[in-house]
Amino acid sequence: MSWIRGPIIAVLACLVALTGCSGGSDPEPGNGAGLPSGEQTLQQSAAAMRALRSIAFTIATEGQPNIAVRGGDVKLLRSGDAQGSLQIQQAGLTVETDFVLVGDTVYYKGLTGAGYQKAPRSQIVALYDPSAVLDPERGLAKLLTVARSPKTEAREKVGGKDAYKVRATVPRETAAALIPGLTTDLTGHVWVSAADHRLLKMRGVVPPAGGGQEGAVVLTFTEFDSAYTFKPPV
């Protein structure tokens, strides 16, 4: 169970960590080119994300970030129920697994390909509570308000939508409560929809372990408030 539990936690940690690279505290006048301030942009995004009941995102990596997850496609409800697939690096190999987290049970496909196995949800919640991600007081909306020195750098397209690109840093002490083992501040970019202020994309730098090269994790959001229904796999 530990081989799948760790990657699921890593996915949720990535989500929180990258969102944390996007809040605002110091006013940023004079962006130029008609761009809104980073503080204003991220305050609006926090408000837009605070009411979400569900979210979907894809995961991709650049370089060699110090995480087990190399890719994935995840759908998540505010309750903490989730469903998706993950590409996991294990012993130098990348394998794919499907999982469904419903109620008190997580269902996952093992490396043997022999169908789904199951384990208690408590084994995940004891290390990381997925319901925190969309909790207005603990997750995305909360962390969008606490990062330092936000700066709107550009207006770009993400998935065909106009978005503001904002760079900022989230303090370690803020993110550490949701990301076990975090030892440094997190710096990165987020892209916020110019139309409705929702997060469209995040890119966060992941510090190296043991002197290795740093990498990055990119999350792209494609669905908001969809009426997901997750059921235990047959």
Rank of each mutant, 00 (worst) to 15 (best):
I4S: 02
I4L: 02
I9K: 13
L12V: 03
C14I: 03
G24R: 04
P29C: 12
P29T: 11
L35Y: 01
L35P: 03
P36A: 12
G38H: 11
L42H: 03
S45H: 07
A47L: 04
M49Q: 07
A51M: 14
S54K: 09
T58M: 00
T58G: 08
I59T: 00
A60L: 05
G63V: 12
P65M: 11
I67V: 11
K75I: 01
S79L: 10
S79N: 12
Q83W: 07
Q83D: 10
Q83H: 14
Q90I: 14
A91N: 10
Y107K: 01
G110V: 07
L111F: 03
L111R: 10
G115L: 06
K118A: 08
I124A: 04
L127G: 04
D129C: 14
S131E: 08
S131T: 07
A132K: 13
D135Q: 04
A141P: 05
K142W: 15
A147M: 14
P150E: 07
A154D: 12
V158R: 15
G159P: 09
G160D: 12
D162V: 06
V166E: 06
R172T: 12
E173G: 00
A175E: 12
A177M: 13
A177T: 13
H189L: 11
V190Y: 01
A194I: 12
H197I: 01
A209D: 08
G210P: 07
A216S: 14
T222E: 15
F224G: 09
Y228A: 08
F230W: 10
P233K: 12
V234K: 15
